[in-house]
Design a protein around this nucleic acid. Structure first.
Length: 837
RNA sequence: GCCGGAGUGGCGGAAUUGGUAGACGCAAGGGACUUAAAAUCCCUCGGGGCGUUGCUCCGUACCGGUUCGAGUCCGGUCUCCGGCACCA
């Protein structure tokens, strides 16, 4: 051990040693298993601070659990398919596979440099045929069960990426990746019927007690279940009917018009040659504005035989419900606005109950209440009326109760090259024919010309496309779309359960390790990835591959890494190193300091982890990102804070350096330690506190704070004799064990220096004795009428009577109580006495 | 609009079951060491008041309540962040 703390030197040393010792190999399960998983990264070529935070959190948990005696699976891999590889190919003429694998190499080095305890033996890349063949296999299983199907549909089309986007990939009508305005395009697409699982995905949210409430809420909202009634309205002068969906059957008597979605099959027919229909589809300047077109036809309300006009309305969605609605302006704000604008009558059928006759409404009354003007249902409460009217409708065959979900089927087709080929063959004779399982994998061909123009690049790869029909042997062509990369990430956690050379779906391996005990990743995946993974797991369960139906028992969504932004009037956004002392290094102009935002390349408010590790080392980088905020909250970057973490490790180092000689000479004979000494008790308290903080939702920031306290006390400690050396050794030994999961390299080095055999990670987690967590002396707080008036140091463990006596005798207390009679004395054991006068 | 979450010093954040508000760190100020600086170490550090080194009053977004005692529980208001958003 050198006198000076040199992170580069020791970190490299231990990373090498760990590899030689193969210390991160997956345990065979002997006792309790623990599957710790962090969301795998896209191999962009460089890690960012978000990765550092995510993986530091995961590594603390994995290393801690190992020390606690769990058999741990802690794998890492690559979400390797996706657009950037293809864009790089178009821009630089390099093959996507080459580009991807080069990036994987680079990023693996960076992750290793962080000292993360992954078992690289189980590394996977989703772009390898050994991996994606199983995507294809899953597709075939889904196809067999009609869970994969093809339909022509209007899809989101990004003109810039020239590809289809899933609903979830469209944010504010813009592409999630490039922010282009999304257009609609009609294409044949493959879908997974996730809507078949909507109800199970919804109710099983209740079983996910280890998930953050916010994520569950987002999933529930995304699924968007609503219960209501479908009702048929006959069209006057015709024998046809118009079917609508409503959640408010209690307002049926208030219907004054009917709305069709512009793309409802009846719209064009009923509206005839009305040109306005086309205009309406291409949304006006203000998409919020409500526009309707009268078709001239009327519908008959089956409950009261009123004839009401049928209109086409721009605000009605074809994809939801039946694409047609009944409009009740008195009790729906949108209908109210529309009715006012077009002079349609407003008929009140619900009152608040205060007044049972209609009033002049200034806005829609959307609450539930008491029915009026509703024939035999008048006088009922909304809730009862909903039930009674629904029954009435079903009895007379006028409609039926229905449940609707906001969730749509998952469109998985992508007109892209760098993804899993969809294992389907189109035969002129036999139609759509799945590739037989023996034919897997359908290999993605190399050396396909990529231009970024048009759609599916595979369509031009004749050798790929041209094939024979598995059924009839005749001429046939392959599907040229590839799968959404969310398919890849929907089951990768299952692949890790088996070693590289084992069957990917080995049931024993899967049931040994799954479900994931702790999953850690960004909140941005709250719906997409996490919902799809749950869906896949349920399908696998139904197929009989797995015996559980939720993949992730506990979920930790870490907050974003944020930093203030710098902007120069002339040069725009500036990198932190371009804004020196508040001025732009290019033009010397004053830099505008912007708000704290998520680190992003576009705003240049980024810190390069590589640079950070070079300057301070991996241990400091990890420690800071764990100390600055609790994991689930956003973390604000602070250069000074990093230095603080670095200082702490330096102080730990020099404390170890200073006392290592004493420790060695005194041996480590704990029996000689004075059990009453404050440092001994502080050490026990710290072990307890750190353990509790980790167990209690991973409050690493407070765990680290208490380790800092222990170091402060150890540094201030002045030994008087040999026994005190043993005590210091005891404190240091435990401190190093506690910090090991957080800053593993320095812990190993100090551990070794203290004369122990590596590795510290083969040591059990330290234990505490509750008897020794108690201080010998306590500070008794004395309150008068709930206000602190005095404090006194008293020996721990005094009986209540004694505490009361001390409190009442206190001079200061006397000043406040005066000669007023004591009404009551409240004693909180070992802490506080409150005197009420 | 609906649904979630959060408001505590100059800053990041602590306070686990209702019991000393501000742990730990950062910044700032003062001191030691040094020719000097950096590094390091020590001290101070929520605000106001005074007879100024100890005492006192106020203080956890705002208003009210429960309680011997409220950052914590209850009712209401405001602000900020995130998600969804013509879903009938």
């Amino acid at each position: 051990m050198d006198e000076r703390y040199d992170p580069q030197k020791i970190e490299l040393k231990w990373q090498k040693k760990w590899e030689e010792m193969n210390i991160h190999a997956t345990d065979t399960i002997k006792g309790r298993k623990f599957y710790c998983l962090e969301m795998f990264p896209y191999p962009s070529g460089n890690i960012h601070m978000g990765h550092v935070r995510n993986y530091a959190i995961g590594d603390v948990i994995a290393r801690y659990k190992k020390m606690r005696g769990y058999d741990v699976l802690h794998p890492m891999g690559w979400d390797a398919f996706g657009l950037p590889a293809e864009n790089a190919a178009i821009k630089h003429g390099v093959q996507p596979s080459e580009w991807t694998y080069k990036n994987i190499d680079a990023m693996k080095k960076q992750l290793t440099g962080l000292g993360l305890s992954y078992d690289w033996e189980r590394e996977l890349a989703t772009c390898s045929p050994e991996y994606y063949r199983w995507n294809q296999w899953f597709f075939l299983q889904m196809f067999k069960r009609a869970l994969a199907y093809r339909k022509s549909s209007s899809v989101n089309w990004c003109p810039s990426c020239s590809t289809v986007l899933a609903n979830e990939q469209v944010i504010d009508e813009k592409c999630w990746r490039c922010d282009s305005i999304v257009e609609l395009k009609e294409l044949d697409q493959w879908f997974f019927r996730i809507t078949d699982y909507a109800e199970r995905l919804l109710i099983d949210c209740d079983t996910l007690t280890g998930w953050p409430e916010s994520v569950l809420t987002m999933q529930r909202n995304w699924i968007g279940k609503s219960e209501g009634v479908e009702v048929d309205f006959p069209i006057r002068g015709s024998d046809r009917k118009l079917r609508i969906f409503t959640t408010r059957p209690d307002t049926l008597f208030g219907v004054t018009f009917m709305c069709l979605a512009p793309d409802h099959p009846m719209s064009r027919e009923l509206a005839g040659g009305n040109e306005k229909l086309d205009e309406m589809k291409n949304a006006g300047e203000n998409p919020e504005e409500k526009i309707i077109i009268f078709t001239g036809e009327n519908a008959i309300n089956p409950l009261n035989n009123d004839a009401v006009p049928i209109v086409v309305a721009n605000f009605v969605l074809m994809e939801y419900g039946t694409g047609a609605i009944m409009s009740v302006p008195a009790h729906d704000q949108r209908d109210f606005d529309t009715a006012k604008k077009y002079g349609i009558p407003i008929k009140q059928v619900i009152t608040s109950g205060a007044n049972l006759s209609p009033v002049e409404l200034e806005e829609a009354f959307e609450d539930e209440g008491i029915l009026i003007n509703s024939a035999q249902f008048s006088g009922l409460k909304s809730n009862d009326a909903k039930k009674k009217i629904a029954e009435y409708i079903e009895e007379r065959g006028l409609g039926k109760r229905t449940v609707n979900y906001r969730l749509r089927d998952w469109g998985i087709s992508r007109q892209r090259y760098w993804g899993t080929p969809i294992p389907i063959i189109y035969c002129k004779k036999c139609g759509i024919v799945p590739v037989p399982e023996e034919g897997l994998p359908v290999i993605l061909p190399e050396n396909v010309s990529l231009t970024g123009l048009g759609s599916s690049p595979l369509a031009d790869a004749d050798e790929f496309v041209n094939t024979s029909c598995p059924k009839c042997g005749g001429e046939a062509g392959r599907e040229t779309d590839t799968m959404d990369t969310f398919v890849d990430s929907s089951w990768y956690f299952i692949r890790y359960c088996s070693a590289k050379n084992e069957d990917a779906l080995d049931r024993d391996n899967i049931s040994n390790w799954m479900p994931v005990d702790q999953y850690i990743g960004g909140i941005e995946h709250a719906v997409l990835h996490l919902l799809y993974s749950r869906f896949f797991t349920k399908v696998l369960h139904d197929i009989g591959i797995v015996n559980f139906d939720e993949p992730f028992t506990n979920l930790l969504t870490q907050g974003m890494v944020c930093k203030e932004t710098y902007k120069c009037q002339e040069h725009g956004w500036l990198l932190p190193e371009e804004a020196e002392k508040g001025t732009c290094i290019k033009c010397n102009r004053k830099v505008e300091i912007g708000r704290v935002e998520k680190m992003s390349k576009s705003k240049k408010n980024v810190i390069d982890p590589n640079h950070l590790i070079e300057t301070y080392g991996a241990d400091t980088s990890r420690l800071f990102s764990l100390f600055a905020a609790p994991p689930e909250k956003d973390l604000e970057w602070s250069d000074k804070g990093v230095e603080g973490a670095f200082r702490f490790l330096n102080r730990l180092w020099s404390a170890a350096y200073r006392i290592k000689a004493c420790i060695r000479s005194s041996g480590i004979d704990d029996s000689a330690i004075d059990k009453d000494s404050p440092l001994f008790r502080k050490t026990h308290r710290t072990i307890k506190k750190v353990t509790h903080d980790i167990e209690r939702d991973f409050h690493f920031n407070t765990a680290i704070a208490s380790m800092m306290e222990l170091l402060n006390e150890l540094t201030a400690f002045r030994p008087a004799d040999e026994n005190d050396y043993a005590l210091m050794g005891f404190a240091l030994r435990n401190l190093v064990l506690l910090i090991a999961p957080f800053s593993p390299h320095i812990a190993e080095e100090v551990w070794e220096t203290m004369g122990n055999k590596p590795s510290i990670f083969r040591q059990p987690w330290p234990e505490w004795d509750d008897e020794y967590t108690k201080a010998m002396q306590i500070e008794l707080v004395v309150q008068v009428n709930g206000k602190v008036r005095a404090k006194a140091m008293v020996p721990a463990g005094l009986p209540d009577e004694k505490l009361k006596e001390i409190a009442l005798r206190d001079r200061k207390v006397g000043e406040f109580t005066g000669d007023k009679p004591v009404r009551k004395v409240i004693i909180v054991k070992g802490k506080l006495v409150n005197i009420v006068v």
